[in-house]
């Protein structure tokens, strides 16, 4: 475990916590006659979180972590897998089923079809994989799908005029996690013998490039001290 990998995992964890915090705030604000300003913003505007992206992530973790009960790597590894599985499914549950959280979700803006991402990724995983076995194909599928799963969220951000702070932080943390993983691969390539994983690297690189545009606007909004807004 190197510092880049640990930092990457921690930013990934933080992104999940930011989302859970957001959901918690929406839940706890509802019904108050004089909500705090954060509650007010979160309840008045749509949440800006894409359910489509969250569902894709749940699918990514479910297909990637099939080995959780068969291969033991470390306690750290198992705990993190359980956290990502548990949090992704509970976030989906909250947005779909929780009375108040569901109301803050803007279904009409979040129109991306899962199908357009899932099917090509599945086909690609069937064609390009390291070993043609059930577990390996699903694992490869999870890599391809993770690479593009952020697209519905980025499209939603572009459509939402007011991006609230937490949603902006969430996407930023996810992008930072990917960028740190690339540094981790570079580090491992030079320090570990036979560390070559083309499928992981290329899909990881594609995934990180998808954030480039967002990063540009995120940092310029920080620099100019204005609210984050993506061009239409």
């Amino acid at each position: 475990m190197n510092i880049f990998r640990l930092a990457g995992d921690m930013t990934h964890l933080m992104s999940v916590l930011v989302l859970l915090l957001k959901i918690h705030t929406i839940k706890s604000c509802a019904g108050k006659s004089y909500p705090c300003s954060l509650c007010f913003i979160l309840l008045e505007s749509s949440s800006g979180i894409s359910l489509k992206t969250q569902e894709l992530y749940a699918l990514v973790f479910a297909t990637r972590y099939l080995d959780i009960f068969t291969d033991f790597i470390s306690v750290y590894n198992t705990i993190m897998k359980l956290i990502f599985l548990g949090s992704s499914f509970s976030i989906v549950w909250y947005i779909r089923r929780h009375k108040i959280v569901r109301r803050s979700y803007d279904k009409d803006q979040d129109t991306f079809r899962h199908f357009f991402l899932v099917l090509p990724c599945l086909l690609l995983a069937l064609i390009i994989n390291e070993k043609f076995t059930f577990k390996e194909v699903l694992w490869t599928f999870s890599l391809y799908l993770e690479a593009v799963a952020i697209l519905p969220q980025l499209i939603l951000l572009q459509r939402t005029r007011n991006i609230d702070n937490l949603t902006g932080q969430y996407v930023f943390l996810l992008g930072a996690y990917r960028a740190l993983y690339i540094l981790n691969w570079i580090y491992r390539y030079f320090t570990e013998p036979h560390y070559v994983h083309w499928i992981t690297w290329i899909s990881g690189l594609v995934q990180t490039l998808l954030y480039a545009d967002f990063f540009y606007y995120y940092f310029s909004s920080l620099k100019n001290n204005v609210k984050l807004k993506l061009p239409a």
Binding site: R5, D9, H12, D67, D71, I73, S74, N77, M80, K81, F84, W139, Y181, N184, E192, H194, Y195, H197, T200
Partner: peptide
């Protein structure tokens, strides 16, 4: 042990 190296990432 190559496979294990790959799967140790999240």
């Amino acid at each position: 042990d190559e496979e294990h190296v790959m799967k140790d990432e999240l």
